[in-house]
Computed example of a mutant assay.
Amino acid sequence: MRAVVIEEPHKLSVTTVPDPTPGPGEVVVKVTAAGLCGTDVHMLAGEFGPTRYPVIPGHEFSGEIVAVGEGVTAFAEGDKIAADPAIYCGACHFCAIGRGNLCEQWGTIGITVDGAAAEYVKVPARNCYRLPETVELRHAPLIEPLSTIVRGFDIVDPKLGDNFLIYGAGTMGLLYMQVAQRAGAGSVSVVDINADRLTVAKKLGADHVATSADDLERRLGWEVVTDCTGNIKAIEDGLTRPIRGGTFQQFGCAPDQELAKFSPFRIYNDEIRIVGSMAILHSYGRAVELLGKGVIDSETMITHQFALDEYAEALETFKRGTGRKLQIVPDKAPA
């Protein structure tokens, strides 16, 4: 089959590799589409610690099952599915206490094992979710990023009427915004230095948008401030914005060696809660249901589709901040 392979940091190829074969408890999926995200950029740059090279990227995907391994009874050839990419050992301390996303042997399809930027991908059957009839295959790769948002909300545990400030109007910020609206936010404000992105945020229902939080009128601050950029300047600014007793959530993936400055006195004096949100935990199935209910405007979110041979171009498009969710479509011919 044809596949994208990250051979090592800064080295990418599109080549022919052996077709995957399902082992016991596994299925092989013909990939309909695979979404790009910031993690893929970090992987190619050698900035995402768990990556194991060489690897086929692609952890946001959907498709149709074309082969099932021994012992698989819940799925059959022809089933349309999306899959939780997370792989846990099930035996370490963190798995034992139900925190598999912090697993000592943490793995992910498309990061530590071969993923879906290919014609076919091998997946544990236990990770698969049959799609509701209301969800199109081409929309279903949105389930993975949406499931990380669901996990983020589990951690923040907002109250009805809380006011949200979101840094970043890219894919994750816009998904976070749409979930916050449906979760009973009092208001949702979005900050992004890209004015074009703010136009989309406003279209999708943001109450207030600005290129700087200084331009937003909320004297006391926001109950929930979330960084969806991973940008150090945005993070440092965001840490100054929660209301007393409020929460700052680090949701975006910053380079693993970067450091941010903040005021420990303010954290103490104003009882600011700082929380992280790492990947997916008991949230993928709920994301399937939310997408099926139309919580996300999928058509607006997906803006670009690229062939396998255009993967490098897709990454450059992503890094320029052009569009929203970009997808790799293995069946698509290069332009």
Rank of each mutant, 00 (worst) to 15 (best):
D196K: 11
D196T: 07
D196W: 06
D196E: 14
L198C: 07
L198T: 08
T199Q: 14
A201I: 01
K202W: 07
K202Y: 08
K203G: 05
K203L: 14
L204T: 00
L204N: 01
G205E: 00
G205M: 05
A206C: 07
A206Q: 03
D207F: 06
H208Q: 15
V209K: 00
A213W: 05
A213Q: 07
D215T: 05
L216G: 02
R218H: 15
R219V: 11
L220R: 15
W222C: 00
W222V: 05
E223T: 07
E223S: 09
T226F: 08
C228S: 12
T229F: 03
N231H: 04
I232H: 10
K233I: 03
A234D: 03
I235W: 11
E236R: 05
G238L: 07
L239Q: 11
T240N: 12
R241Q: 04
R241N: 03
R241H: 00
P242C: 02
I243Y: 08
R244W: 07
R244V: 09
R244D: 10
R244Y: 09
G245C: 11
T247P: 10
T247C: 10
F248Q: 08
Q249S: 12
G252I: 05
G252N: 06
C253E: 11
A254H: 11
A254R: 02
D256A: 12
D256M: 15
Q257D: 15
E258C: 05
L259W: 13
A260N: 00
K261H: 14
P264Y: 12
R266K: 11
R266E: 06
R266Q: 05
I267S: 13
Y268N: 11
Y268H: 14
N269Q: 14
N269P: 01
N269W: 13
D270W: 13
R273D: 11
R273K: 15
I274R: 05
V275C: 10
G276D: 04
S277T: 10
M278I: 14
A279W: 12
A279R: 15
A279V: 14
I280H: 12
I280E: 11
L281H: 09
L281W: 09
H282L: 08
S283R: 01
Y284H: 13
A287N: 03
V288Y: 01
E289I: 12
E289L: 14
L290K: 13
L290T: 06
L291C: 07
G292K: 10
G294A: 09
G294I: 04
G294E: 08
G294V: 06
G294W: 09
V295T: 15
I296P: 04
H304S: 09
Q305I: 04
Q305M: 12
F306P: 00
F306A: 06
A307T: 09
E310C: 02
E313F: 06
E313N: 11
A314V: 01
L315F: 02
E316F: 03
T317G: 04
F318T: 01
K319G: 03
R320P: 02
R320D: 07
G321V: 00
G321M: 04
G321H: 05
T322L: 15
